[in-house]
C-alpha cells in the first residue's frame, strides 16, 4: 500500500482494512430461486393472517377443491430449542381434531417470533377453542401448575421481582428496574429446563413495561405447556428485527408450586 493512503486508513479504518484483506468476492454470485421466494412470501402471508390461512392449491395435493386450515409454522432453520420454539399444541388434542374432521390437518407445533405471538395466540385460540367448539369437541391441555417465583437479578441489574402463575395468567412485579438501553425493550419469556437446569425451550410471553416499577399480567398462550415451561426470564432485547432471545437476561426465577 502506498504511503498516501495512511490518512485514509485513519479516517476509514474498517473500509480500508476490509479492502486490504484480499480480492473482493462477487456479492451476487448466486441468484435465489423462485422456490425461496415462495417460502418467504408464504410465511409472511401466514403471519399477516395471524397464524391461519386458507391452504391454496400449492399445498393441497388435490387442488382447490380441498379447503382446510393449517396452522402457521415458522420456517426451518435453527433447531426448535435454539429458536425459542416450544412443544406447542398438545398433540393429543390436535389429533382429536384431525380425527373428527379429516380436512383439518397439519397442526405444525411451531412458534412465531415474539412480535407475532399476539396474533398467533389469537389464531391458536381459534384453533384450540373455536374449531373444537364448532365441532362439539373439548380440548384437554396439559393442566400446568399454579406457582410463584422469586425473580433474581442477573449480571449488573439491581432489579428484583416476583412472578405468579394462576391458570394461564402470569403476573409479574418488578422493583428498581433500570431504564432499558436505547432502542431496546424488556421482554418476558418462559423457559423449559432439563434436569440439569439447562434451557431446552424458550417461549416469548410479552413485553415488560420500561418503568422502574412493573406490575403486569400476561396471558400465557394456550400452546405453551405451563407444566414444562416453569422458569420466568426477563431479557433486554435490541430492536434489531431478531426475534429470538438476545441472551442478555436481567431477571430469572423458577416457578414452584404454590
Amino acid at each position: 500500500m502506498v504511503a498516501d493512503f495512511s490518512d485514509l486508513e485513519r479516517e476509514f479504518p474498517d473500509a480500508v482494512r476490509a479492502l486490504r484483506s484480499g480480492p473482493l468476492p462477487n456479492p451476487q454470485s448466486e441468484r435465489p430461486s423462485e422456490q425461496l421466494w415462495h417460502s418467504i412470501s408464504s410465511a409472511v402471508a401466514q403471519e399477516r393472517s395471524g397464524g391461519l390461512r386458507l391452504v391454496d392449491e400449492f399445498d393441497s395435493p388435490n387442488g382447490r377443491d380441498q379447503t382446510r386450515f393449517r396452522q402457521v409454522s415458522s420456517p426451518p432453520m435453527v433447531d426448535d430449542s435454539q429458536r425459542g420454539v416450544g412443544n406447542g399444541i398438545n398433540p393429543d388434542f390436535a389429533q382429536s381434531v384431525a380425527e373428527q374432521d379429516s380436512s383439518v390437518v397439519e397442526m405444525a407445533p411451531r412458534r412465531l417470533g415474539r412480535r407475532m405471538a399476539i396474533g398467533f395466540a389469537s389464531a391458536a385460540a381459534v384453533i384450540l377453542v373455536g374449531i373444537p367448539l364448532a365441532l362439539g369437541l373439548r380440548g384437554e391441555n396439559s393442566p400446568g401448575l399454579d406457582g410463584a417465583a422469586e425473580l433474581a437479578a442477573i449480571g449488573n441489574s439491581s432489579a428484583d421481582g416476583e412472578a405468579a402463575l394462576t391458570g394461564r395468567t402470569l403476573s409479574v412485579g418488578i422493583d428498581a428496574l433500570e431504564s432499558a438501553p436505547e432502542s431496546s425493550t424488556y421482554e418476558l419469556w418462559l423457559l423449559q429446563v432439563d434436569a440439569a437446569g439447562a434451557p431446552v425451550g424458550i417461549e416469548w410471553i410479552g413485553t415488560v413495561d420500561n418503568t422502574a416499577t412493573v406490575d403486569q399480567t400476561f396471558e400465557v398462550p394456550a400452546e405453551i405447556d405451563t407444566g414444562l415451561y416453569t422458569v420466568v426470564d426477563v431479557s433486554i432485547e435490541p430492536d434489531d428485527g431478531d426475534l429470538s432471545h438476545s441472551g442478555n437476561s436481567i431477571l430469572r426465577g423458577q416457578l414452584t408450586q404454590s
Binding site: D79, V200, H245
Partner: peptide, 9 residues
C-alpha cells in the same frame, strides 16, 4: 445443543 441464555453471547 441448546445453551443457557447466559451462554448465548
Amino acid at each position: 445443543r441448546p445453551s443457557t441464555p447466559d451462554e448465548h453471547i
